[in-house]
C-alpha cells in the first residue's frame, strides 16, 4: 500500500512541477520575503507584512492547486484506477502529492531568504511560529481543496467555489464575527470569540500570528480569558491542535468521497 501511494505521489509531484505553478509559488514567497526584509529594513520589520501575506496567499494557492489537481489527475492515476486496486492508497498518494510539494515550496520560499539574510536570534521564535502556521494552513487547505474538487464535476465550478470559500473564510467570516461582537456586546464575549476563531482555520492561524506579534496588546485586555490564552504557550498549542483537526477532518472526508466516487 505504501509503495503504491508513494508511486502515485511521485507522479503527482512530477505533474505539479511540470505545471510551473508550484515553482511560481515558491519564487513568489522568496521574492516577497527577500524584498520585505532586505528593502524594508530587516526581519523584524518584514514580519507583520509576511504574516498578512501568509494568511492571504497560502490558503488561496493551496485551495486552488488542490482543487484543480482533482480534475488534472495524470494518466497514471486514471490507469491505476481502472485496475482492481484499493482506492485508499491512491488517494493517500494524491493527497501527499499535493500537500508535501506545497509545503516544501512555501518553506523554501519563506525561509531561504531569511536564513541567507541572517534572521537574528531574537526573531527565530517568531519566524518559527509563522512557518508552522503556514505549514498547517497548507495542510488544511489542500485537504479542503480535494473535498471541493471531488464534490464538483466540472473544473470551473470547483475552482469558482474554492474562490468563494476563500473569500468567505478570509474576509466575510471576520465581518460576521465583528458583527456578533457588537450585537452581543452586553455579554461576556471573550470565550465565544475564541470559540468562533476555532471554527475558521484562517483565524486559527491568525491567532498563532497574534501570539508572536501582538502578545503585549492582547495581555493588555482586561479579561482573564485572553490573559491566560495569550499569556503563555497555551494559546499557541490550542490553536495548532485545532488546526491539526482542521487538517484531518477534510482529509478524511475527501478520502470517503474518493472511495465512493464514480471516476
Amino acid at each position: 500500500m505504501i509503495g503504491r501511494a508513494a508511486k502515485v505521489m511521485r507522479y503527482q509531484v512530477v505533474d505539479l512541477l511540470r505545471g510551473r505553478a508550484l515553482v511560481g509559488y515558491a519564487l513568489f514567497f522568496a521574492a516577497a520575503t527577500s524584498g520585505l526584509s532586505l528593502l524594508g529594513g530587516g526581519t523584524a520589520r518584514a514580519l507583520p507584512s509576511l504574516a498578512t501575506l501568509i494568511l492571504l496567499v497560502v490558503p488561496l494557492v493551496s485551495l486552488l492547486l488542490a482543487t484543480t489537481t482533482v480534475y488534472h489527475r495524470g494518466d497514471f492515476v486514471n490507469l491505476l484506477l481502472s485496475h482492481p486496486v484499493g482506492r485508499r492508497p491512491v488517494f493517500v498518494g494524491i493527497h501527499l502529492g499535493v500537500t508535501l510539494p506545497l509545503t516544501a515550496a512555501f518553506l523554501l520560499g519563506l525561509l531561504l531568504p531569511l536564513v541567507a539574510g541572517g534572521i537574528g536570534a531574537e526573531h527565530v521564535a517568531d519566524v518559527a511560529i509563522l512557518a508552522v502556521a503556514g505549514v498547517l494552513l497548507t495542510g488544511v487547505f489542500s485537504s479542503i481543496g480535494l473535498v471541493v474538487g471531488l464534490s464538483f464535476d466540472r473544473l470551473a465550478r470547483g475552482a469558482g467555489f474554492a474562490l468563494l470559500l476563500w473569500l468567505a473564510l478570509v474576509v466575510l467570516y471576520d465581518g460576521a464575527v465583528l458583527f456578533a461582537a457588537y450585537r452581543w456586546a452586553a455579554y461576556p464575549m471573550e470565550g465565544p470569540m475564541l470559540a468562533l476563531m476555532a471554527l475558521n482555520p484562517v483565524d486559527l492561524a491568525r491567532v498563532m500570528v497574534l501570539v508572536a506579534l501582538d502578545a503585549s496588546a492582547l495581555m493588555g485586555y482586561t479579561g482573564a480569558v485572553f490573559q491566560d490564552f495569550f499569556g503563555g504557550a497555551s494559546g499557541l498549542l490550542v490553536a495548532a491542535a485545532c488546526l491539526a483537526l482542521w487538517m484531518a477532518a477534510p482529509a478524511f472526508a475527501a478520502m470517503r468521497l474518493f472511495e465512493r466516487k464514480d471516476l
Partner: peptide, 12 residues
C-alpha cells in the same frame, strides 16, 4: 468592544 481585539491583523 474589547473582545474584537482577536480580529487584529484580519484582512477585514
Amino acid at each position: 468592544n474589547e473582545p474584537a481585539l482577536v480580529l487584529q491583523r484580519s484582512p477585514l
